[in-house]
Design a protein around this nucleic acid. Structure first.
Lengths: 161, 161
DNA sequence: ATTAATATGTTATAATATAACATAGTACGG
DNA sequence: CCGTACTATGTTATATTATAACATATTAAT
């Protein structure tokens, strides 16, 4: 099992991992022959700077502040779509909000633990869960392509508060 | 493991299960002291008649046709909210659409297999997956309350076509 | 320089969802 | 039976989320 759970819910900052994340995004774009433009990098940073998932319009507002000019929805949605295709960002669809993927290169399908109190989201990559689902899909002859697992509850920090 | 997979993806109709579902909904409302009004019953039927999840506005249009009068969004959303609270209907949040829960009384947390081709959705209730997730949550001291698992892929029928 | 491809800007609008208040129906104690 | 409180529905308006369609700009290769 691989997770950023304690970093998200008990760690003090994420700065260090953001630097690494940008590096990773850059090299991924390089190998995929994709253009990590200034705009896309900005959106990536905005989403990654938060352990709370951001709605597209929140990203839009932050982007607008950072660039000191007005930004229209398609600008944001296109950048997010680009990042999602590369697996750098995921949508938490129950929240209509977006969060950075800490393990973009993992081949296992990850899932999210979402704290109802502080709204932060941690990612977990578990081969056990993954295998169990794969096994069920196999038995039913369902060719699974993509999965989205969202667990809502209370994180370790908020529970003790 | 409990599933309506073959009923949904290989069965010819769902009529039989709808009758049982309505009976179940009625008695559930009875014991919960909730009012299974004509409107709520209609919305329940509309959603249950489909193995494809329906958007709220699709429900609205069908409802409007069935009652021969115009229906406003809050009417539909309120009925859906009511049914969801009772566990009779779930939202597939990746689709912004709603589907009946075939195992409303199951204490296990269920998940959905969604065919990208025919759009039908089957529900699976697996204690293995459930336990695995519970175990991870336990290790991380995450008090999980609700979970939403959506598996997208190709069903057995569409694969062979 | 010219073209093709990619990325962004811009305008408009579609699709999904809820707030707030008005009215109607129901249930029950007096 | 009446009045009150509660529940459900009707109605209007608007918030939130997302995309279509077309224009312009940037870039990369010929």
């Amino acid at each position: 099992m691989l997770t950023n759970y304690s970093l998200v819910f008990q760690g003090s900052n994420r700065q260090k991992s953001i630097v690494a994340a940008i590096k990773h995004a850059e090299s991924l774009c390089m190998t995929e022959n994709q253009n990590f433009t200034a705009l896309r990098r900005l959106v990536f940073e905005i989403i990654w700077e938060n352990s709370v998932p951001l709605g597209a319009y929140e990203v839009k507002n932050i982007l607008s502040r950072k660039t000191s000019k007005s930004v229209d929805p398609p600008t944001v949605y296109r950048a997010i779509e680009f990042l999602m295709k590369l697996g750098l960002v995921t949508k938490i669809s129950a929240l209509n909000a977006f969060i950075g993927c800490p393990f973009p290169s993992s081949t296992r399908s990850n899932f999210f633990m979402i704290c109802n109190e502080c709204k932060r989201v941690a990612e977990v990559s578990s081969s056990e869960v993954d295998n169990e689902i794969k096994s069920i899909a196999g038995k039913l002859s369902f060719a699974s392509e993509r999965q989205q697992i969202e667990i809502f509850g209370t994180c370790v920090s908020c529970k003790t508060d």
